[in-house]
Design a protein around this nucleic acid. Structure first.
Lengths: 215, 215
DNA sequence: CAGCATCCGCTTTGATACTG
DNA sequence: CAGTATCAAAGCGGATGCTG
């Protein structure tokens, strides 16, 4: 992208990360850590392969990410954020918070990856009973599995199944997200295809932070 | 911009504000409140007039801003952010914070407006002596004047001159910003063209928040 | 197959000119 | 002042081809 040529910190930041796809590449690397080229392609449905290659080069020059040549057993290059790149987390968090009210019903055309749930889980949910023993909830959606865990009053999301989950949520992503964000009643979420095994109390421990219940 | 077609809050946000120039339009409206079309043109050096017209229409549809037809004496349309648009302040703040280390020496080609200083002043500076009586500093740069005031430990920036400033800083924007952000020594800032009238102690009350002294 | 580079049709951008 | 109209150039998306 052409520089804005403005002596302003916001414009300078956008000179680096304002290009199309750029912040979504950072999202992928924040959520999945070191990734292969093909992993990035899979997590960025719709991107053109030449464009991804260009962006990776630009972001490397801008010290946002670095490429590492994995040791012989793997034999592929990996991309990971630099410390400077990881500082973009606050930008992504603010954007995700602002975009959260737009996450209503999912259109059929919209792509989804289960690990994307880690973002709203971490930033938009808290544990309503932080003193109680931690809970683990397994979430199965889009043919993929993630687990949500309460840690010190916060909520963490990790890829893969849970060992002994307190609850298992299965169903379409918009029903699961609607329930967790308090936008959709449990009964309505069930009508949208949501299924619950285990403790509903464990699910109710996850509460949206103020300002995100509406809509 | 084409939608990313992803069921992800960050992608949804970027669908609305990810276009070129869009977040800078929001910056202008955050800093100057209701603005005329020509005011926006002036605060966005480099934008094409048709592009500004397009963006304003899109942002109005997205409930980010609204146009108000000012009463007869003014007889012009004004643009102002909606509450939803004002919530983008956190995104701009995160971007500005991240871009701040890039604000080193100003290139001759880079445009600058004095009121842009309000952003770093508000978000990146604090009052080191909040118990003491508040101070006012007048900043003259780029043929324009803004004043910085300490309020409850924070720093506020307002357009226009101060009545009885404790200090007056005059000089190029990068010297002023370098001094305030602690990146440039006072003596070096003077060599870059900075001039100080009044109390240097008043200026030293303004301290960068943690994480922004380096570089 | 992973990691690109090349080509091509289309859309967006930026510069300029023009209008009520 | 507040835009609209026009057009060349750049960027984007999709398909395909090349290399280890």
């Amino acid at each position: 992208m052409r520089s804005y040529e403005q002596y302003c910190a916001v414009a300078k930041a956008l000179d680096v990360v304002g290009d199309r796809w750029t912040l979504l590449i950072v999202r992928e690397l924040l959520l999945r850590d070191a990734s292969r080229y093909t992993d990035l392609m899979d997590g960025l449905p719709g991107i053109a392969t030449n464009l991804l290659a260009n962006r990776l080069r630009e972001l490397e020059e801008a010290d946002v990410l670095r490429r590492i040549d994995a040791p012989p057993p793997i034999a592929t290059t990996l991309y990971e954020l630099t410390p400077r790149g990881r500082e973009l987390a606050s930008v992504l968090e603010a954007l995700g918070r602002w975009g959260s009210p737009l996450m209503t019903k999912r259109a059929d055309s919209e792509e989804f990856r289960a690990y994307w749930l880690a973002f709203p889980a971490m930033h938009l949910l808290t544990d309503a009973a932080p003193k109680d023993p931690p809970v683990t909830i397994e979430v199965r959606t889009n043919d993929d599995v993630v687990r949500l865990e309460t840690v010190d009053g916060a909520v963490r999301a990790m890829p893969g199944p849970a060992e002994h989950p307190d609850a298992v949520l299965t169903g379409p992503p918009d029903a699961i997200l609607g329930l967790l964000m308090g936008r959709v009643e449990f009964s309505k979420a069930k009508r949208r295809g949501l299924r619950l095994e285990g403790s509903i109390a464990a699910v109710r421990r996850l509460q949206p932070v103020a300002g995100h219940t509406a809509n």
